[in-house]
């Protein structure tokens, strides 16, 4: 494998890891506050549709992004209503949200565009286009560093940079602010937070809303940056892979970055069977490679390679004592 192939492979790794990273951080906020969220996939899907639809109609991708975030936020609030206010089962609520998004997006897409459950292709300003970083063209002829900078680091859409910037931001918010401390506490021991006079319900709703915004950006990235338009079921289980990455990362922001990059690499390798064959000398079936993140998550979760311990109060509704 030559250097350029490697750069190309890493480049598509970054592209594929971005939605996983955003969704993984989304799940991190929610689960650190004690709200399990298996509805990540549905929220991404809804955001992908609404951002593509609004971008297609208005020609402005930023309006599309806002619409995507709003759609994802609405589903997040539904999840909050079910699991925080009415103390319902968070897992069942997540399942319902996934199906709701899968059905409604196709139904509305068919009603608005009559193209068999898809949006028209997005062109020009209706998409997030690649940004060329300064000096990328000037540096390109340099050996080693040139292609690295011009191909791998430069030339992504703004959402990719936003996703990578979200990692230190999440870390800072969770570990260096009062809000972060309380948010983590509410996922471990909500009664203690309540005793301190801080609203458990308020904190959990805040966490669920942050989760909605991040999922919204992830979904918008899928339909307006990674691809040009919405197609049926385009999230393709990415929400579940993000969930797997979250467990892999043991609910920590920097590990989330590495986990999603690893899973992104698997995704990139899936489209390049020739590279794998050259690397390890045997032909690996694409389907099996696609299943690798799930297999690895099962192994990690079972504690065979380092134990993943979830937030202690995760999944349990908080009942205030009287």
């Amino acid at each position: 494998m030559d250097y350029m192939t490697l750069i190309q492979l890493l480049d598509s790794t970054v592209r594929l890891a971005t939605p996983l990273l955003l969704a993984c951080l989304a799940g991190l906020f929610s689960e650190r506050a004690g709200i399990f969220d298996i509805g990540l996939d549905g929220k991404m899907l809804a955001a992908a549709f609404f951002s593509a639809a609004v971008a297609a109609m208005s020609g402005n991708v930023w309006l599309g992004l806002l619409a995507g975030i709003a759609a994802s936020l609405a589903l997040s609030l539904l999840h909050g209503l079910a699991s925080i206010t009415f103390r319902g089962n968070q897992l069942i609520s997540g399942v319902a949200i996934n199906f709701l998004a899968a059905g409604l997006t196709v139904l509305i897409a068919q009603d608005w565009f009559q193209q068999g459950g898809r949006t028209p292709s997005l062109i020009g300003g209706a998409r997030f286009n690649p940004i060329t970083l300064p000096f990328a063209d000037a540096l390109e002829p340099m050996p080693i560093i040139g292609p690295l900078y011009a191909e791998l680091i430069s030339g992504h859409s703004i959402l990719v940079y936003a996703a990578f910037a979200a990692v230190p931001l999440t870390w800072w918010l969770l570990y260096r602010t009062r809000f972060g401390l309380r948010l983590r506490a509410v996922g471990e021991n909500p009664a203690a937070v309540d005793t301190a006079g801080v609203s458990v319900i308020g904190l959990r709703y805040a966490a669920v809303c942050i989760c909605g915004v991040l999922c919204g950006i992830a979904g918008a990235y899928l339909s307006t940056a990674l691809q040009a338009g919405f197609i049926k079921d385009m999230s393709a289980g990415r929400g579940y892979i993000a969930l797997a990455a979250l467990i892999f990362a043991k609910w920590r922001p920097w590990y989330a970055l590495w986990a999603t990059l690893l899973f992104g690499l698997f995704g990139a390798l899936e489209t390049r069977p020739d590279v794998i064959e050259a690397l390890i000398g045997i032909k690996v079936q694409g389907q099996l490679l696609g299943a690798l993140p799930y297999v690895m998550t099962v192994i990690i979760l079972a504690g065979f390679v380092g134990k993943a311990i979830p937030p202690r109060a995760g999944g349990e509704p908080y009942v205030k004592e009287r």
Partner: peptide
Amino acid sequence: VVIQALVILFTGALD
């Protein structure tokens, strides 16, 4: 799929 989601939502999560 939408009806299925609503049934799960109302009989399960929003019980």
